[in-house]
């Protein structure tokens, strides 16, 4: 795949790419630089870190003053619980839709596809009252509910299962394995890649979800998005450095997950966009 590009175009391409690279990275590296620098430096003119101990001090202040640790733990529990439920439900649905033929299959898949475009604002208010009425607001289940039937996840897993040889299932059926035994014993272990793809993408999405958590969270459950959105108000009594340390802690998990699993994320988002 060799492509000749003219010299002028080459220069333009490099210039634009470098400028945008700076735009993307500087705000993020600035958080690290400022957090790990001593308090006597101006916040605006700090472009590199100079003190590890000051950074640790800032993080300790953030932990002491904001309640960010329990909130992080809750967010982790909330996100993991949601993803496990969502994967079970959608993997099973994808298994039926991809591996078998039965009346209504195409219609059901069409419903799933079109619900990918369904705007959340349409159902979120009545759903909130509904969940509230079931006394599930401010609980783990209440937080997780709207994220569990996720069309995107069914779509990605189904896409993958289409390529699995059906003989695998037929052979297991001849051996007398039950329908759901085949799913748990044979198909589920093969799905590692799509399951991982959905997991990492949804980890980032749900970690940063705000509209639903603001509605149902209360005194018991307070995900990081709700906590941080409150802290960022200018009425907050916290100093700039503490806020930045809090941002660093709360934003780190999705970034780390991305840096480790970026291949899956990029591929997953690309497929959903191309086939949609």
């Amino acid at each position: 795949m060799k492509k000749k590009t003219t010299g002028a175009a080459r220069v333009i391409v490099w210039v634009f790419a470098s400028v945008w690279l700076l735009v993307c990275l500087i705000p993020l590296t600035q958080i690290i630089s400022v957090n790990f620098s001593t308090a006597d430096r101006g916040l605006a003119s700090t472009f590199w870190p100079n003190s590890l101990s000051a950074g640790i001090e800032n993080i300790r202040d953030a932990v002491d003053q904001t309640g960010i640790l329990p909130s992080s733990a809750q967010t982790l529990i909330f996100v993991s619980f949601t993803i496990v439920c969502m994967l079970l439900v959608s993997a099973l649905a994808a298994y039926e839709l991809a591996c078998f033929r039965f009346p209504g299959r195409n219609l059901l898949f069409f419903i799933i596809l079109s619900s990918m475009m369904l705007p959340m604002i349409v159902y979120v208010i009545p759903l909130y009252r509904f969940v509230h009425g079931l006394s599930l607001s401010d609980t783990l289940v209440g937080l997780a509910i709207p994220f569990i039937p996720l069309a995107f996840s069914v779509f990605i897993i189904r896409q993958f299962l289409e390529s699995i040889p059906k003989e695998l299932i037929e052979a297991a059926e001849i051996d007398g394995a039950g329908h759901f035994t085949i799913f748990f014993r044979i198909i589920l272990p093969l799905m590692a890649i799509p399951l991982l793809t959905v997991t990492v993408i949804e980890f980032m999405q749900i970690w940063g979800s705000f509209l639903w958590p603001t509605l149902v969270s209360g005194t018991k459950w307070k995900p990081l998005s709700v906590l941080l959105a409150g802290l960022l108000g200018d009425g907050s009594f916290l100093t700039g450095r503490v806020k930045i340390a809090a941002l660093l802690i709360s934003g780190l998990p999705p970034v780390i997950v991305y840096l480790i699993f970026q291949r899956y994320i990029v591929d997953g988002i690309a497929t959903s966009g191309l086939k949609g």
């Binding site: 990275l25 993020l28 916040l43 940063g208 998005s225 930045i244």
Partner: peptide, 24 residues
């Protein structure tokens, strides 16, 4: 490299992005 780097801001949760820019 460029594709990953250009995607990085999207990975930052909205509160991180908003917080950083409010500060900048």
């Amino acid at each position: 490299f460029f594709r990953s780097a250009f995607f990085l801001p999207y990975v930052a949760p909205f509160f991180l992005a908003t917080g950083v820019w409010l500060w900048l």
